Simulated assay, not measured.
Amino acid sequence: MGKRKKSLSVVKKKGNNFIELGKAWFDWGDIYHFLLTISWASFFSLIIFAYLILNGIFAIAYMSVSEGINNVRPNSFLDAFSFSVQTMATIGYGAMYPESLPAHTLVAIEVFIGLLGLAMITSLMFVRFSRPTARVLFSKVAVICPYNGVPTLMFRVANLRNNWIVEAQVRVSLLMPDTTTTEGYTMRHLVDLSLVRSQTPFLALTWMIMHPINSNSPLFSINQEEFLREDYQIFITLMGFDGTLSQTIHGRHIYFNQDIIWDHHFVDVVRITPDGNRYIDDAKFHDILPV
């Protein structure tokens, strides 16, 4: 079993994505999770690479067997590779066939490996397609502006699918800067932020998440300069039930200190058509204006 040489150390932002530095890219002990989380392009590239390598290995094995495959040109890797492809896929055109016992043994082994590979790839494809995912859009920035006379941290989310996220719940936590205990240990801790509304019966269009910065808020005594100077981060997790699949879905996002814009508010994105229907103006979802 492979061992990770590094552990999670820090989360950094690169463009619109987040990377975890210090974590091993691959672990043989967790290959199933690796195959489920890589991109589709990487997944198919890996399958094609493994398919070519396996057929190449068996082609070399067939070439090393004397009087192994009938109707194969002597020392022809292409013919042996073609026979391996036919055998692994159990096609069996009949033009080439094994003659000796070692060749029959290799054919049996390759057919068995081909059946196992087909079953594994089929199951992985099914899991990747059936895995519930949330198409939740988080605003690129969060803002701090007055709301009913109280400074309020705000950001918004939207459901990108044409269905409902039922019983949606959101949790917002503030990652505080490093602190040193009396024993000399350096630690960071998360503080949950209270929200004006932390759940909604259904999320169909957009939802403005708001945290009032009052005397009970850990942000109450922090000014803009200190917030930008220290390594504050805001972690958001959203959970709900997909209204179509009836499965639990999750969404997550991180706002770093430079992503928090002070004294700005979001542009209204909800529009009403003449027949009374509501829709979101996606072009202005991330737009903000000075207070």
Rank of each mutant, 00 (worst) to 15 (best):
N277I: 10
Q199S: 12
H104R: 13
A50T: 11
I144K: 06
R156Q: 01
D178I: 15
N223T: 01
P102A: 09
Q224A: 12
F138S: 02
F138V: 01
L106H: 01
F126N: 09
A80H: 01
H189V: 10
L245D: 04
K140L: 04
P274V: 00
G251C: 00
L52W: 09
D178H: 12
I48C: 11
F58P: 00
G240M: 08
H250R: 14
T122E: 08
L190S: 06
F256I: 03
E230D: 08
M88S: 04
A24K: 11
V141S: 02
S123Y: 14
T181H: 06
L118H: 04
N71S: 09
F49C: 11
R278L: 13
G68W: 08
F220I: 08
P132G: 02
Y147E: 13
G2C: 14
L193H: 00
M63S: 01
D231W: 04
V267S: 07
I222C: 00
R278G: 10
N55D: 02
E226W: 09
F34D: 03
N55G: 04
D268G: 04
A89G: 11
S84M: 02
L8I: 13
E167G: 12
W207G: 01
P132L: 06
L245V: 13
G240F: 03
D281T: 01
S217Y: 05
R271G: 05
R278Y: 13
Y93R: 14
G92S: 10
K13L: 07
T90N: 14
K140T: 01
L195T: 03
A80V: 00
D30P: 00
T105F: 15
K3H: 09
N163V: 11
I260L: 03
Q233W: 12
I144V: 08
A283Q: 11
S9I: 08
V166H: 06
R4T: 07
L35D: 00
W262D: 04
S76Q: 00
N148Q: 11
F44Y: 14
R128E: 01
V85H: 02
R128W: 06
N162R: 15
H264P: 03
G240S: 05
D287Q: 07
D27N: 07
M208C: 08
V196W: 14
V85N: 03
N71I: 05
V107A: 05
M239I: 11
R161N: 04
L101N: 03
E225D: 12
D242Y: 03
A59C: 06
S45P: 04
I254E: 08
A80N: 04
T122I: 15
T87R: 07
I60M: 14
T244G: 05
H104K: 13
A108M: 13
F43S: 06
G184W: 06
I165M: 08
I69R: 07
A95F: 15
I47W: 09
S246K: 10
S7F: 13
G243Q: 10
R131D: 09
R171A: 05
N75Q: 14
F155A: 00
F241E: 04
V196P: 10
A41S: 12
A168P: 01
